[in-house]
């Protein structure tokens, strides 16, 4: 089972190490972790995707809450939510393939953000399925480099994970 945790943490040095250390020493599988500051500079938000059975996911939430720098932990997997990833793919592109690549990028509502003599960089945002799909679609052209942000997620509507919650 895969779960999306939305986690608010103090923006203190070492907080990422505390969270990452917790996962590694307790043997939890992180699928992805993304972290950055929020509108409040003292707080960062992490979206952590974890793979595990129910008991593991329960422990993940509880162990995260034990960290003093962790303010809120919420498993939002089963709540209505939006999740997104961003991918950059550097793909082989010469005049003969460029049009075809552009068509694929169009279909995925992506953008070409860099064009070189032999390569171009494609940028796509979307949920995991879409990201996987464009990756597969571009594979035949030869992917030179690839980077994904990992998932960020947010509940729909008025539901939130905030300090005040």
């Amino acid at each position: 089972m895969r779960s999306n945790f939305s986690v608010l943490v103090e923006n203190n040095p070492g907080v990422l190490a505390r969270v990452a250390g917790l996962f590694s020493r307790r043997g939890y599988n992180i699928d992805s972790l993304s972290v950055s500051r929020t509108d409040d500079p003292t707080i960062s938000r992490m979206t952590i995707v974890v793979d595990g059975d129910e008991a593991v996911l329960d422990q993940v939430a509880k162990q995260l809450r034990k960290l003093v720098d962790v303010i809120r932990v919420r498993d939002i997997t089963n709540e209505p939510h939006v999740d997104r990833e961003l991918i950059l793919i550097k793909v082989n592109a010469d005049p003969t393939t460029r049009t075809e690549i552009m068509q694929i990028v169009e279909i995925f509502r992506g953008r070409i953000v860099d064009v070189g003599e032999y390569t171009c960089i494609v940028e796509v945002t979307g949920d995991e399925g879409k990201i996987d799909a464009i990756q597969n679609a571009l594979k035949p052209f030869g992917i030179l480099e690839l980077v994904r942000t990992g998932k960020v997620a947010m509940q729909r509507g008025t539901r939130t994970v905030l300090v005040e919650d």
Partner: peptide
């Protein structure tokens, strides 16, 4: 030492 003791303290500070 804050790195070393991260998993064996309840919390630590530099």
């Amino acid at each position: 030492i804050t790195g070393i003791t991260m998993p064996i303290t309840k919390h630590n500070y530099l």
